[in-house]
Structures are given as structure tokens and as C-alpha cells.
């Protein structure tokens, strides 16, 4: 509380309190992420009436899109550090598959799910996906853009375009955006610094005055959290209702005409070198390197 007659020292303290209040209010971290086929599956493209798809797409086991998963773990970690923060996971995918995915993902970190029922396939147009996600974010009750950080992967393992997060940001009117993020450090005044991956294994280091911002993550630095049944139980209270009220979204290939989609035959005639001494192999490798 501030006194009526402000002396400079009081004023400074008041400003500090205001800043602290800002972060004390906490962040709203909205993570955009959905399912992709488990990378160990063999993928075969097929033509469907709505454009290309994957053979047995609905049957393929799925995982949470890896870079989006990293951003979810980073979001939870950040929320823990900034009291009063909350994490939302906004997922566009077939309801039944999202439900399956949540059996594992919901045990990792605390979040509230916002589900949208539609395809999670890679051949959809990023503009349509971004519009759907931005609309869902805008509709989160109590959304406060002054506290909003939108997280997600820097690219999906399906479309792999690396454009969706920027398009979401544009639709939400957020002009501070970071792509390929490996680190965020928050200051008490709500400003933060970011490391983004750039060429040649280097980082671009920036600071931003504060939320709102979009951060499209690379791997970050956190390992995958172990399953925690208590976290799972708490999340599930929101997951089931969120899935029940998931609105259908008509997301498709948009204006893309796919002329061809194929898995190019890449089989090489591999020469196996066996029962040969390390000396001989080393000499051959050196010759090859120098050649």
C-alpha cells in the first residue's frame, strides 16, 4: 500500500511493488501442441478425398509432437518459478486420439487442456491450423494478454513448416516472437531474456520487456518428466470435460494442390566390411575422408 505523500524513496518502493504484483499475478502460458505419429512407425502416404494422408492414419500410435512437448515441460517449469501462473495445453486433434494421448501426457506436468476436435495430420494448411488455434486461445476464459506467453514447438514433426506459431502470434496481435528457443529467464519485473538457435550452433540472445510474447521452442534443457500419477489425477479432472466440449474444426489442405506425395526409394547397395582389422578399416576411412 502506498502513502499519499510520496517521497522519492516511497515512490521507488511503490514501483517495485507494482512490478512485483505484475509477476505475482502470474503468467498465463498457453502451449500449442498436438499428436504426431510415433517416429518409430513406418509412414506411407495415401490419397484421400480431402488430400494426402497416411495409410492407417487413425490406427498409428501417436506421441505428443516432440518440440511442443519440450515447450510444455519448459512452460511447467516456468510456471513453478512464477507464482500464480497457469499452463494451458491447446490441442487440435481427433478427440479419441487426444484422449489416448492424454493418458500419458497428463501424467507429466500440471496443465488445463483446451481440446479442438479435428485432424492433426501434417498435410493441413498452417494458416487454417493457426486460425483455429488462435480462436481457441482467444476464447480461454479470463485470458489476459498482458500476462500471456504462447508456447509451442519451433516446427512439428508432421508438417515441419515452422510457421504456425508466428501465424498464431500475428492473429493474436503479438509482435514479440522468438523461434528455436532453448532458454528463457524471467526477471522480477516481468521482462525476460531468451536464447534462440541460429546458424552454426550459435544463439541469438535477446531481452524482451515482458508479456505478451510467442516462444516457439527447440529442445530447451529439461529432460522428459517422469510420469506422476498425482499430477495425472489432477489433470484428468479437466481433461475429460475439455474433451467432451471439444468443438469440431474444419481444418484442411486449404489452397494447397498436392500433385504428388511419395516415400522416395532410397535403398543403397551397402557394402558390409566384417572380420577385418581396425588398421585396415582405419586406412580405408582415412583414404575416403581425404579423397
Amino acid at each position: 500500500m502506498c502513502s499519499l505523500a510520496l517521497v522519492p524513496a516511497d515512490y521507488t518502493q511503490m514501483k517495485i511493488n507494482q512490478m512485483e504484483n505484475k509477476t505475482m499475478e502470474g503468467l498465463q502460458i498457453v502451449v500449442c501442441g498436438t499428436l504426431v505419429p510415433d517416429p518409430l512407425q513406418t509412414l506411407e502416404p495415401v490419397t484421400t478425398p480431402t488430400g494426402p494422408g497416411l495409410k492407417n492414419e487413425t490406427m498409428l500410435p501417436s506421441v505428443l509432437d516432440p518440440w511442443a512437448a519440450h515447450s510444455l515441460y519448459e512452460a511447467a517449469n516456468l510456471a513453478k518459478k512464477v507464482p500464480g501462473s497457469k499452463v494451458y495445453l491447446v490441442s487440435l486433434g481427433p478427440k479419441a486420439k487426444l484422449q489416448q494421448l492424454m493418458m500419458t501426457v497428463a501424467q507429466k506436468v500440471p496443465f488445463e487442456l483446451v481440446a479442438i476436435d479435428g485432424t492433426a495430420g501434417g498435410f493441413t494448411d498452417a494458416m487454417e491450423v493457426a486460425k483455429t488455434l488462435a480462436t481457441a486461445i482467444e476464447a480461454i476464459p479470463g485470458l489476459d494478454k498482458t500476462r500471456l506467453l504462447v508456447f509451442g514447438g519451433c516446427a512439428s514433426a508432421s508438417r515441419d513448416a515452422g510457421v504456425t506459431m508466428q501465424l498464431i502470434g500475428e492473429q493474436l496481435g503479438i509482435t514479440d516472437q522468438f523461434v528455436g528457443v532453448d532458454e528463457i529467464s524471467m526477471s522480477d519485473d516481468g521482462s525476460f531474456s531468451v536464447l534462440e538457435r541460429i546458424e552454426g550452433g550459435q544463439y541469438l540472445a535477446s531481452t524482451c520487456a515482458g508479456a505478451p510474447a510467442v516462444l516457439a521452442w527447440a529442445t530447451g534443457s529439461l529432460p522428459e518428466p517422469p510420469n506422476n500419477p498425482q499430477v495425472g489425477m489432477a489433470n484428468m479432472r479437466f481433461v475429460m470435460p475439455a474433451l467432451q466440449k471439444a468443438q469440431p474444426a474444419a481444418v484442411g489442405v486449404g489452397g494447397i494442390n498436392f500433385e504428388k506425395s511419395e516415400v522416395p526409394a532410397q535403398k543403397r547397395a551397402t557394402r558390409i566390411v566384417k572380420d577385418v582389422s581396425a588398421d585396415v578399416i582405419a586406412a580405408e576411412i582415412v583414404e575416403w575422408i581425404k579423397g
Partner: peptide, 20 residues
């Protein structure tokens, strides 16, 4: 590696790389 590499050496990488 088979079908993806041109050559696969079945060997201990510690020994081979030391020699290389």
C-alpha cells in the same frame, strides 16, 4: 545402416577411430 549407408564397418569404433 544397411540400405542407408554405402559402407558399414563391423568393428569397434574405439579401436578404429584411435587408428584413424
Amino acid at each position: 545402416a544397411q540400405g542407408k549407408a554405402d559402407v558399414v564397418y563391423i568393428a569397434n569404433a574405439f579401436e578404429v577411430i584411435a587408428k584413424v
